[in-house]
């Protein structure tokens, strides 16, 4: 045997092996469905968690910045605001001070221990509540960075506090914090991969199930990684387009 035929054999062996591996991991018993279904679960959990995160985050940010900058008000309002602000601070401290995985486990095994409940619902709540805390601090920073004059201009026209926030401050804030928010959502998308700890069959878990059935780790895990990467790249580009569109008004 000469050198070239040996190399040729190696190459052809590699392809045969790869083909076999590919067949075993993805085609046989329709195992690709673990990935597709898992991807669906991951996307669902991420999407709803993002929505909860945004709503919760903006709410907390508005309460906290209102507390910090609002002028005089009736004693009753002041009291309500102080209580709300205190609750928000507790929320931020607890959520940002503990790992998301621990929060997920607590919500699943403690809070919802006695009820039969859809696991993806639990994951949505856990990741949404977790993300909300980070979104809140991003948005609060954004609100505080808007020039005080914008606020005064709104109030001087006769807008009340809420209207000034809604028409003038929030739109500008949103534009300013979009890059940071986008980053938060990319992190969130990848963070949902720990949902397998409550036996939720998301993308990561799907790949892991294939691995446990075929005892071949490389291809399933590589496929999982490639799908995450693809999603993140798509999401980043989407955000870039959105950013450019929002910025266009200022050119």
């Amino acid at each position: 045997m000469n050198f070239f035929s040996a190399v040729g054999e190696d190459i052809s062996n590699f392809f045969t092996e790869f083909g076999n591996d590919f067949y075993l991991n993805f085609i046989k018993n329709a195992r690709w469905q673990y990935l597709v279904n898992g991807l669906g679960v991951t996307l669902k959990v991420t999407l709803f968690a993002v929505i909860i995160g945004i709503v919760l985050g903006f709410l907390v940010a508005i309460i906290r910045s209102t507390h910090d900058k609002a002028g005089t008000m009736t004693p009753f309002l002041k009291f309500v605001l102080n209580v709300l602000n205190f609750l928000c601070n507790v929320y931020l401290t607890v959520i940002r001070g503990t790992p998301v995985l621990v929060q997920l486990l607590i919500i699943y095994f403690v809070i919802f221990a006695s009820v039969r409940i859809d696991k993806s619902f639990v994951a949505i709540i856990a990741f949404g509540v977790n993300s909300g805390a980070y979104v809140a601090e991003i948005v609060r920073g954004g609100i505080m960075s808007i020039d005080q004059g914008q606020f005064e201009a709104g109030r001087s026209l006769g807008f009340n506090f809420a209207q000034t926030m809604w028409y003038i401050i929030i739109p500008q804030t949103f534009k300013n914090v979009l890059p940071a928010l986008g980053n938060e959502f990319i992190v969130l998308l990848k963070e949902t991969s720990v949902a397998g700890y409550i036996a939720l069959e998301d993308l990561t878990k799907g790949g892991d199930i294939i691995r446990s059935q075929t005892f071949s780790a490389l291809l399933p895990l590589l496929a999982v990684a490639a799908i995450y990467l693809l999603m993140v790249v798509l999401l980043s580009n989407l955000l870039k387009i959105l950013e450019r569109r929002l910025r266009s008004s200022e050119k």
Partner: peptide
């Protein structure tokens, strides 16, 4: 009913 004009204009940039 009280219009106000500021030193820094404070137009809404968006």
């Amino acid at each position: 009913k009280m219009g106000m004009v500021f030193q820094q204009f404070n137009l809404f940039p968006h």
